[in-house]
């Protein structure tokens, strides 16, 4: 599986260029045209990226999340679930790196085959960074009215997170 996932991208690159040549396209010119569009996209998404990273970092580094969730610690202890999966579940839609850091911590201290390790792995896999993706994608095309995108995205995350807790219980008891 590891080899397949490593070889798939290089082969894909060769395949794209080969198809271009076969259709007698000026592949180099096409590449430059597309790359330039990509550069403009980067330019368009940078303000949103900076805004989000600024807010997320202040929030995370202030340590408030542990303060807010402190009350839940005893509940988690009685359920025999390590408390650290709760901040991870809450951070998952906001920051992929933050939840990945917690996952790393859980795997290192409790082991990947512990109940918490499995639960945290599934939590990381069950959803993506909704808040960040929505801010980024809409800003790239300069849309300010995002309508129901964010609430629906967060609802999907919530269902995914709940499913992760339930499925871990079912699969690994």
């Amino acid at each position: 599986m590891n080899i397949i996932s490593k070889i798939i991208i290089p082969l894909f690159v060769v395949f794209i260029i080969y198809c271009g040549l076969k259709k007698k396209i000026d592949v180099y010119d096409s590449f430059l045209k597309g790359a330039k569009e990509g550069l403009i996209t980067c330019f368009n998404i940078f303000p949103a990226m900076l805004a989000m990273i600024f807010a997320i970092n202040i929030f995370l580094n202030s340590g408030i999340i542990n303060f807010l969730l402190g009350g839940f610690e005893s509940i988690f202890n009685t359920l025999n679930i390590p408390f650290s999966v709760l901040p991870m579940a809450i951070l998952r839609p906001i920051s992929g790196n933050a939840s990945l850091a917690i996952l790393n911590d859980i795997l290192r201290t409790l082991g990947p085959d512990s109940y918490a390790g499995r639960l945290a792995s599934i939590l990381q896999g069950c959803t993506d960074t909704t808040v960040y993706v929505i801010a980024l994608y809409f800003s790239s095309v300069r849309i300010s009215k995002t309508k129901q995108a964010l609430p629906v995205g967060l609802f999907a995350d919530l269902m995914g997170i709940l499913a992760a807790f339930v499925l871990t219980k079912i699969f690994f008891g």
Partner: peptide, 11 residues
Amino acid sequence: WTGLMKIAEDS
């Protein structure tokens, strides 16, 4: 990738 995908688009 936007460069490569432009080739895929044009072909």
